[in-house]
Simulated assay, not measured.
Amino acid sequence: MAAQDTIGIVTTNIQNKTATVTFGHPASNSFPRNLLDKLTAEIHKLSSNQEVSVIVLQSQGNGAFCAGASFDELLAVQTLDQGTHFFSGFAHLLNAMRNCSQIIVGRVQGKAVGGGVGIIAACDYVFATVSSAIKLSEIAIGIGPFVIEPAVSHKIGKTAMSQLALAPHAWKTAPWANEKGLYSEVFDNQENLDENLNSFVEKLASYHPQALQELKKVLWEGTENWDTLLLQRAQVSGKLVLSDFTKNALSQFKK
């Protein structure tokens, strides 16, 4: 099954009780709002599929895992409603991932920025390569990682989150992300990553589905307020993106 248009793609392949979901976008796998909606809808759809025990989430290509929000769409925001609508796309995706019935295993082959780090944090187990550095650049453009912060802090804690958020120009290495708990395992190259990921997922898919579902609930205990919280955070970001500071910063970034 696949959903595709000129500005992004989401495809799903189901084999042996495992759904591999791939998202892609020409601009370093960044996310315009409609692509966020496609991925969210796919996660919701798979969550009710009793033939699927595990979801592998990956991005297209061998470059960046995810460059976060689409700068073109951020620059196009003219009103608070538009800004809130855009950032709520990340809110809906993260909530879909945490509420999903299946364990979500992330495959991270390259760098991740902003919202991409949030998506990684919303996975339950993550395989990455040593080239998969991460960065939260939002504060440098006048906004902040407000929508994704609960997911990132849930995974690595407030202290590590602050080290990312307050150093928006600094890349944190894959070993750093592994040490903090964002990455579960890190490998020298994609070949080793895929070999170990496939073995892990094969075993995971063989376990009792109900036991996996109950464990998933345990992993996300204490996040029940996120349905409201993340949308409130989207409104904060939606307001900040309207500032002259942010408009100028985004224009400079694009240049």
Rank of each mutant, 00 (worst) to 15 (best):
M1Q: 08
A3H: 10
Q4L: 13
Q4G: 01
Q4S: 14
D5G: 08
I7M: 12
V10T: 14
T12G: 08
N13V: 14
V21A: 09
V21R: 07
T22Y: 06
A27P: 01
N29G: 04
S30P: 05
S30M: 02
F31C: 03
P32G: 03
P32T: 00
N34H: 13
L36E: 06
D37P: 00
K38E: 04
K38Q: 06
T40C: 04
T40Q: 03
A41G: 08
E42S: 07
H44D: 11
H44P: 00
L46K: 00
N49S: 10
Q50T: 14
Q50F: 06
E51Q: 14
V52C: 01
I55D: 02
S59R: 09
N62R: 09
A64P: 10
A69E: 14
A69L: 09
A69G: 12
F71G: 00
E73A: 02
A76T: 02
Q78A: 14
L80F: 09
D81P: 02
G83P: 05
G83V: 05
G83M: 02
H85F: 08
F87N: 02
F90M: 13
L94A: 05
S101K: 13
I103K: 13
I104S: 08
V105P: 00
G106D: 08
V108T: 12
Q109K: 11
G116N: 07
V117Q: 04
V117Y: 02
V117G: 04
A121W: 10
C123I: 13
F127S: 11
F127N: 09
A128D: 11
V130H: 10
S132H: 12
S132L: 12
K135P: 01
L136E: 00
S137R: 13
E138D: 15
A140G: 11
I141R: 14
P150Q: 07
P150W: 07
A151R: 06
A151E: 03
S153K: 15
K155H: 04
K155G: 01
G157N: 11
A160H: 14
M161L: 15
S162W: 04
Q163S: 11
Q163A: 08
A165N: 07
A165Y: 03
L166Y: 13
A167C: 06
A170C: 04
W171C: 00
K172H: 14
W176N: 08
A177L: 08
A177V: 08
A177I: 13
G181K: 02
L182Q: 01
V186K: 02
F187L: 02
D188F: 10
N189A: 09
E191F: 11
L193N: 04
L193M: 15
D194I: 12
N196K: 13
S199W: 04
F200R: 00
F200P: 01
F200K: 01
V201P: 02
L204F: 01
Y207F: 14
H208V: 05
H208W: 10
P209G: 05
A211N: 10
L212T: 04
Q213C: 03
Q213M: 10
L219P: 00
W220F: 11
W220L: 05
E221C: 07
L230Y: 06
Q232W: 06
Q232L: 14
Q235H: 11
Q235L: 08
Q235P: 01
K239N: 13
S243Y: 07
L250Y: 05
S251G: 09
K254F: 00
